[in-house]
């Protein structure tokens, strides 16, 4: 099957298109002549950058008025498809809203979904998506069979975002159909954590801590080190689940994907679900007291030692230099 028409699920954060959105648009325009961005919200502020990255058309729902995006956007997408513009492929980001929208739409269209992918190709076997398993050691390529639209989601940083210098796209308003009782969930309040320093998924240095830190209070070692290196602090899921740090710190399969120049893992075992989020780092330093810890299998520099001894000395040494 040749891919002619691709939709990209587009998101904004703080008034600009997310990097993930621009990554997907960049890939989409390499595959299809016609690329449309689908925005749950107002397209106004981000339309130009969507166009610069390859979208020639933008569907926008306008403000969702507290509705959860998944149910609303799936219904809006379905109504556009029913009215005659049916894409061959819809690309979603592997995140909350992408996942929910894709799931709802798959039932409405009776189509399968392929999730957690890092690549997509138009081949003789059809549209093929690639997903890493076993911590990224094995790549599985899966072809869609049957009719489109093919629904496929991608892990962050699967593609590099590049501008094509495209013109401003045509913006078309799409109404969200009446959702009936399926639309009963409403956001009544929003809470955001304030963070300072570079963003975890953009920082050149990431220092992550795990259960090996022993207790929540010791996480300050990670924060101090990250600050000295002008990096961002991160975490394994074990200490997020334990409530030591917020979820936004989590690196891994269900957290952020990071590819910094240096990733420092302190007291982290290196579970497959953690590794998929940080294996793409240019350099990896691991500190773990267990020399059998899987993290050493991918570390450029591994220190078999106690984080409570190594980190304070490292912090002192760096302070002495600055």
């Amino acid at each position: 099957m040749a891919i002619n028409n691709i939709w990209v699920f587009a998101q904004a954060s703080g008034g600009v298109a997310t990097t993930g959105t621009l990554e997907l648009l960049t890939k989409a325009r390499s595959l299809a002549g016609k690329v449309t961005a689908f925005v749950g919200g107002d397209a106004g502020a981000i339309a130009a950058s969507l166009g610069e990255h390859g979208a020639t058309k933008v569907y926008a729902t306008g403000d969702l008025a507290g509705k959860l995006p998944g149910v609303a956007l799936a219904a809006a997408m379905k109504s556009v498809i029913d009215s005659g513009d049916s894409p061959d492929v819809i690309m979603f980001p592997q995140n909350y809203e992408g996942r929910d929208t894709m799931a709802r739409l798959s039932v409405k269209l009776n189509r399968t979904v392929l999730t957690n992918n890092i690549d997509i190709a138009d081949t003789a076997d059809g549209v093929v998506a690639t997903t890493p398993i076993f911590g990224g050691n094995v790549l599985v390529a899966t072809a869609f069979s049957g009719q489109g639209p093919h629904l496929v989601s991608f892990r962050p940083k699967s593609f590099a975002a590049e501008s094509s210098g495209g013109a401003a796209p045509e913006v078309v308003a799409v109404a969200v159909p009446d959702l009936g009782k399926q639309g009963a969930a409403k956001v009544v309040a929003t809470h955001s954590e304030k963070s300072s320093g570079p963003k975890l998924d953009e920082a050149a240095v990431v220092v992550s801590g795990g259960r090996g830190l022993g207790e929540a209070g010791n996480y300050t070692l990670i924060e101090d080190l990250a600050k000295l290196l002008k990096g961002a602090p991160g975490a394994s899921r074990a200490i997020v689940d334990a409530g030591w740090v917020p979820y936004s710190y989590q690196v891994g399969q269900t957290g952020k994907v990071v590819k910094p120049s240096v990733y420092i893992a302190a007291g982290i075992s290196g579970a497959t679900q953690h590794m998929v989020g940080m294996k793409g780092s240019k350099n990896i330093i691991a500190i773990n007291k267990d020399k059998e810890a899987p993290i050493f299998g991918i570390a450029d520099l591994g220190i078999v030692g106690d984080v409570h001894k190594v980190l304070p000395k490292l912090i002192e040494a760096l302070k002495a230099r600055s």
Binding site: P132, G136, L139, A143, F144, K279, F296, G297, G302, I303
Partner: peptide, 19 residues
């Protein structure tokens, strides 16, 4: 609606020095 067409080993990341 989906069919696995290939399974390949990803390029392995080599372990460096462990001390």
């Amino acid at each position: 609606g989906q069919k696995i067409v290939s399974v390949t080993q990803a390029e392995a990341r080599k372990a460096g020095t462990v001390i």
